[in-house]
């Protein structure tokens, strides 16, 4: 394999990985934008989404088969269910604390994460569950490059979801309300915007995107377990920060950048893959040093 083959292969690898990071990062960034909360439970919505998607797939696979058709339906069901879970958790755990000190609500988010993780541990007995599907391993061979059908479907699905979100936020009334709430909640209330409703919708969308990523990851990689949300939660948070937390295009960009960095980082000659994370996070530090608000983040001026 030539250098170029290897380069393009890692580019494809990075795009797939980055799509997952981006989908999860979106939820982080939306919630942060609206209520300034780092929702550390977000990775666990991804995990819960994978489990619900798995259950839904076994329900619909009789009628639709366990190919991509069935997976899409299962994914939509998981998005609905986890979206609702997100709204319920926001109501129970975060809503009463919206005016509490920022640290209290941060700790609440950690607690919610542990509750979800350990509930899943108790329900699954800590076992890995094989997410078996009928999706094949086929793909295109272009010279030495290999692109599987699954990778194309994944990246396309992620792109459709992200474009839909971007259109929703920039063109619809709810999207406008969401942007307004992220700027000034009190003023929105005075203008007659249903702030609680907007926050609920934000949680619904963010959580359902995580569920979409979880179901697709389960189907693509083939196994799910209760702890699968932890690492991706961390990575997605990093992606959101690189892109500029609070910025939706930033989360997408950050996710892709992180995925690409990790793929290329594995293949740097002369230094082994154990340096991958050093490389990735060194770039995170550089980004933050030169642009503390992230690549696409807006600088916020605190007025007194």
């Amino acid at each position: 394999m030539s250098f170029f083959d290897s380069f393009f292969q890692q580019l494809i690898n990075g795009l797939v990985l980055g799509s997952f990071y981006a989908l999860v990062a979106l939820g982080y960034t939306m919630v942060f934008g609206v209520i300034k909360l780092l929702n550390f439970a977000h990775g666990d919505f991804y995990m819960a989404g994978a489990f619900v998607g798995f259950g839904a797939l076994s329900l619909v696979s009789g009628a639709l088969g366990a190919g991509w058709m069935g997976i899409f339906v299962a994914m939509l069901l998981a998005m609905m269910a986890i979206g609702c879970l997100g709204v319920v958790i926001e109501r129970i755990a975060y809503h009463p604390m919206l005016n509490a000190p920022r640290l209290s609500i941060l700790i609440t988010a950690l607690a919610v994460s542990l509750v979800l993780q350990n509930a899943a541990l108790a329900l699954t007995g800590g076992q890995y569950t094989a997410f078996s599907t009928d999706i094949g391993f086929g793909g295109f061979e272009v010279g030495n490059l290999f692109i599987s059908h699954n990778q194309i479907i994944l990246v396309a699905t992620a792109a459709v979801l992200m474009i839909a979100l971007e259109l929703g936020v920039s063109r619809t009334m709810y999207g406008r309300a969401m942007r307004a709430v992220s700027i000034d909640k009190d003023m929105c209330r005075m203008m007659g915007i249903n702030v609680a409703g907007v926050i609920a919708v934000t949680f619904f969308i963010g959580s359902s995107l995580a569920a979409a990523a979880g179901t697709m990851a389960g189907a693509y990689y083939g196994s799910i377990w209760y702890f699968m949300g932890f690492l991706i939660g961390l990575k997605a948070f990093t992606a959101a920060v690189i892109g500029g937390i609070g910025s939706i295009p930033g989360a997408m960009l950050g996710g892709l950048i992180l995925g690409l960095l990790e793929s290329f980082g594995t293949n740097i000659e002369f230094i082994g893959s154990e340096w991958k994370d050093v490389f990735t996070f060194a770039i995170l530090i550089l980004v933050l040093v030169f642009k503390p608000t992230g690549l696409l983040g807006k600088s916020e001026v605190e007025r007194m």
């Binding site: 890692q10 997952f20 154990e274 994370d277």
Partner: peptide, 13 residues
């Protein structure tokens, strides 16, 4: 090579 625990994507390696 070294990979992180819990990472599901091994495509680069």
């Amino acid at each position: 090579d070294v990979v992180n625990k819990g990472e599901q994507d091994f495509s680069a390696v």
